[in-house]
C-alpha cells in the first residue's frame, strides 16, 4: 500500500517537473523569437535611415527598396549591426514581419518613384509605424509599436497603453529589456516585451536641437529652424534622454 502511494507520488512529481521544464523551454523559445523580431524590426529602421539619399533621390533606380532585394538588404544590415547571422525564419511571427516590410515598401512605390517630390517622408519612425499599422489590419494577434512616454509622442496613434506606460516608468529608472509572459493584449493572454532604445546621434537630427538639424547645415544661426524635416518641432533632446522603445506583443493563442 505504502509502496503504491510512493509510486504515485513519484509519477506526479516527475510529471510536474517535466511540465515546468516544458514551460521554461517554451518561454525561452518565445524570448528568442521576440528578441529576433525586435532586432529585425530595428535593422529595417536602420536600413531606412542610412538609405535616405536613395529614398529621396530623383530619377534613380530604386529596385533595392522592394521585394526580396529589400529583405536581403535588411538582412545585411542586421549582420553588420549585431555582428551575428540573420535569424532563421522558423516562426510565423518572423515570416509575417518580413512579408509586411515588403508590403509597406510596395505601398510607397508610387511616391518613391515620383521624380517631382524631393523628401518622401519615408523615415525610420514612419516606416516602423506603417509596419505596425499594417500588422494590425491582419488581425493575427501580433502587435508592434515604436513608442515613447505619452507627453513626448509625436504620432497620437503611437501613444503607449497602460502596460507600456508603466514599463517605461520602470525602464527610465533602470534601463533594461522588460519581458512579461503573463500580460494581456486586446483583453487576451499575451506575451509582451519592451526593448528600450538608447538615443544615438541619428535620433538627434529630428529630436535634438536646431544645431543638430540637417536643414540648418551651412546656414547662419539666425536662419536656423527648430522644425525638423518631417515637419515637427524639435524636442531639444540629448543623448542622455530617454529615446522610447520597441514594444512587441503576441497573443498566446497566436503562438499555438
Amino acid at each position: 500500500m505504502k509502496a503504491s502511494y510512493q509510486n504515485k507520488l513519484c509519477v506526479i512529481l516527475i510529471s510536474y517537473f517535466f511540465m515546468c521544464f516544458q514551460v521554461n523551454a517554451d518561454n525561452t523559445r518565445m524570448k528568442e523569437v521576440i528578441n529576433d523580431i525586435t532586432k529585425i524590426y530595428m535593422s529595417s529602421m536602420t536600413y531606412i535611415f542610412i538609405n535616405q539619399p536613395l529614398i529621396n533621390q530623383q530619377t534613380n533606380d530604386k529596385q533595392e527598396l522592394f521585394g526580396q532585394r529589400f529583405l536581403e538588404n535588411v538582412k545585411q544590415t542586421y549582420q553588420v549591426k549585431y555582428s551575428e547571422d540573420f535569424p532563421k525564419e522558423d516562426h510565423f511571427a518572423k515570416t509575417m514581419l518580413l512579408q509586411t516590410m515588403v508590403e509597406v515598401m510596395d505601398d510607397n512605390k508610387e511616391l518613391l518613384y515620383d521624380d517631382e517630390i524631393g523628401f518622401k517622408g519615408i523615415i525610420p519612425a514612419t516606416f516602423a509605424f506603417q509596419i505596425s499599422a499594417k500588422l494590425e489590419t491582419k488581425g493575427i494577434g501580433l502587435k508592434f509599436k515604436f513608442t515613447q512616454i505619452a507627453s513626448s509622442i509625436r504620432n497620437k496613434l503611437n501613444k503607449p497603453d497602460l502596460w507600456e506606460s508603466s514599463v517605461m516608468q520602470k525602464i527610465i529608472k533602470s534601463p533594461k529589456i522588460y519581458y512579461d509572459e503573463n500580460a494581456l493584449l486586446n483583453g487576451k493572454p499575451a506575451i509582451r516585451q519592451f526593448t528600450p532604445l538608447p538615443m544615438v546621434p541619428l535620433c538627434l537630427a529630428c529630436h535634438g536641437s536646431p544645431a543638430d538639424n540637417p536643414l540648418n547645415a551651412n546656414k547662419e544661426k539666425s536662419q536656423w529652424t527648430n522644425i525638423d524635416i518631417s515637419g515637427f518641432k524639435m524636442e531639444n533632446w540629448t543623448l542622455d534622454d530617454f529615446g522610447g522603445g520597441v514594444s512587441i506583443s503576441i497573443e498566446k493563442s497566436f503562438l499555438e
Binding site: 511616391l111 515620383d114 517631382e116 517630390i117 523628401f119 518622401k120 517622408g121 519615408i122 523615415i123 514612419t126 509605424f129 509625436r154 504620432n155 497620437k156 496613434l157 518631417s230 515637419g231 515637427f232
Partner: peptide, 14 residues
Amino acid sequence: KKKNFIPILSAIHR
C-alpha cells in the same frame, strides 16, 4: 499639388 506636398500626415499641425 506636388509643390505643396506634405508627406507625413501625422504632423497634423501642418
